[in-house]
Nucleic acid binder design. Structure first.
Lengths: 123, 123
DNA sequence: ATAAGTGTATTAAGAATGTTAATACACATA
DNA sequence: TATGTGTATTAACATTCTTAATACACTTAT
């Protein structure tokens, strides 16, 4: 399913969470399907079950997974995690924009920045 | 000059740097004037000189101070630190905007956000 | 020259935090 | 009731961070 990189200096659970998130965002994990159990994935990757649990908890916190007690963890429906993700990013963007205003960057410059970033190739 | 808050859980140097930055940004410290020496401010606040040094180093890194060897640390000219500050904030804003694009937030929503944030009272 | 004032580099001790593992618990279902 | 699920708790270990002690380098006034 995923592969850990031991040259990566980040903690295992963070690395796992990031790889799984990317997998979900890129459609590599079908919504509503069950994730591997904490223990089975732990065996597969040779780590402690708690490490997998922590990665799952992070993904659940971010809305990518949900858990049914005793049955397992499942991938959230696309529309749902997409909305959560957009809300998080939107909050951060607003904070960055408020800072820009406070620093005296004119609104016109921001709008020009949007044109540039949204214009680069795609869209 | 400044006062440390011991209920604040952040490290001393960070607290000092933040308070001094605010002081400079708000015009409480005249550009081109000398800062208190590392040792004198350390005595005044009852901390180790290295702690003050670290705060000063941070401020210098961010362009708020500059140092003349053997003579002391001085407040940077307003235009200069303002430009540094805007550059930092601009970089962060661009990153946030690129993320917004990747998450599928439409450009129009961002532009509306700018109107709202820049419109709130002042301008 | 030299003393006193500046910032800075180096090192170490200690504290605080973060990460992983061990273990036991609670729930669901075959 | 046995097996499979996620979760809570605790502890050990590692890592990072913070502060202090000390010595160094430079400038300037005496």
């Amino acid at each position: 399913m995923i592969l850990l990189d031991y040259r990566d200096k980040r903690p295992l659970y963070e690395q796992m969470a990031e790889k799984l998130e990317r997998l979900i965002v890129n459609g590599g994990l079908e919504p509503l399907t069950r994730m591997p159990s904490v223990r089975s994935l732990a065996v597969e990757l040779s780590v402690n079950p708690n490490t997998v649990q922590r990665a799952y908890a992070q993904l659940e916190q971010d809305g990518y997974l949900y858990t049914v007690s005793g049955r397992g963890s499942f991938v959230t429906a696309r529309e749902e995690w997409q909305e959560n993700r957009q809300n998080r990013i939107w909050q951060e963007w607003r904070a960055a924009t408020a800072q820009a205003r406070e620093a005296g960057i004119p609104a016109e410059r921001l709008i020009a920045g949007i044109r540039q970033i949204y214009g680069e190739d795609g869209q």
